[in-house]
């Protein structure tokens, strides 16, 4: 009846993928990027805990005699588990800060993802898992190097990696949420490093026990996620971890992770869907 029959009709080939597949596809995209740029990335993040181990565990540690404070262990064995926890937090916070802000602001690839069927919540989950995968890589490298220099004294050391990875991921989530709400150029991340990560690294039980701190500042160490991770990691590596405190530490870390997940997903959505 009409003259428009000749006109072809476009039929789209795109479909909505299932949530977990969407997450995996985004990770696949990140992997494509990583394959091109892995050297710089590995040097800046993966090697950092190893350098700390060399300087503090081996170099400085050669001047420390085993004593009651180190549980009678050599200083290298005393700090090997905690340096991993603290190192992974540093990597996690760094990856969750400027790179995430860049996804919104400079690289802007998050906007491209948001215009596909992948949702902001799925994007958040994928970015978190991607950071976690980088932590796994850093931890694996560290585990091997530390074994080679004799930093592990018991098979419990194998549990140090999952604890450190959990602590790192838990710290990444609130920082990702913060990055998603940052409108400026991200100078705030330098402050996060200076006033949160750095003091935490120095005073939350990584290099010496928290009970050496003046009584008034000890609570500051106790509320830091690093202290909970350190207690667990040192406990499994050197022994002496009791059940209830251990469950408490795990609960704190899981709680932080869950809190950050909910907050982060919401912040991603609020930034991308306006």
């Amino acid at each position: 009846m009409t003259a428009t029959v000749e006109q072809p009709i476009a039929v789209a080939t795109g479909v909505v993928v299932r949530p977990w597949r969407a997450v995996l596809l985004r990770i696949e995209g990140q992997w494509t990027w990583y394959r091109r740029h892995w050297t710089a990335s590995l040097l800046s993040s993966g090697l950092q805990p190893v350098l700390f181990l060399a300087a503090m565990g081996i170099g400085f540690g050669s001047q420390v005699r085993p004593g009651p404070l180190t549980g009678g262990e050599p200083y290298l064995a005393y700090v090997a588990p905690t340096i991993l926890v603290s190192g992974l937090i540093t990597i996690a916070v760094a990856e969750a800060g400027l790179p995430v802000l860049s996804g919104f602001k400079w690289k802007q690839d998050y906007w491209a993802v948001a215009s596909s069927p992948v949702t902001p919540g799925q994007l958040f989950t994928a970015e978190l898992l991607w950071i976690t995968l980088r932590l796994v890589l850093g931890a694996a490298l560290y585990l091997v190097v530390t074994a080679l220099v004799g930093g592990w004294t018991s098979p419990g050391a194998l549990l140090v990696a999952p604890i450190a990875i959990l602590t790192g991921a838990a710290c990444a989530t609130p920082v990702m949420a913060f990055a998603a709400t940052t409108k400026g150029d991200g100078h705030a991340f330098a402050a996060v490093n200076r006033f949160v990560v750095m003091p935490m690294t120095l005073f939350a039980g990584t290099f010496f026990p928290v009970d050496r701190l003046p009584e008034v500042v000890r609570p500051l160490a106790w509320i830091s996620p690093l202290w909970h991770g350190n207690e667990l990691a040192r406990g499994v590596a050197l022994g002496g971890l009791r059940l209830w405190p251990a469950l408490g530490h795990v609960a704190v870390l899981l709680g932080l992770l869950a809190f950050g997940l909910v907050l982060g997903r919401r912040c991603f959505r609020r930034r991308l869907v306006v």
Binding site: V16, E28, G29, S116, P117
Partner: peptide, 13 residues
Amino acid sequence: RQNLHVYGRYFGL
């Protein structure tokens, strides 16, 4: 090419 590959995958291709 990678830009097209990565983005296309988000559409379930």
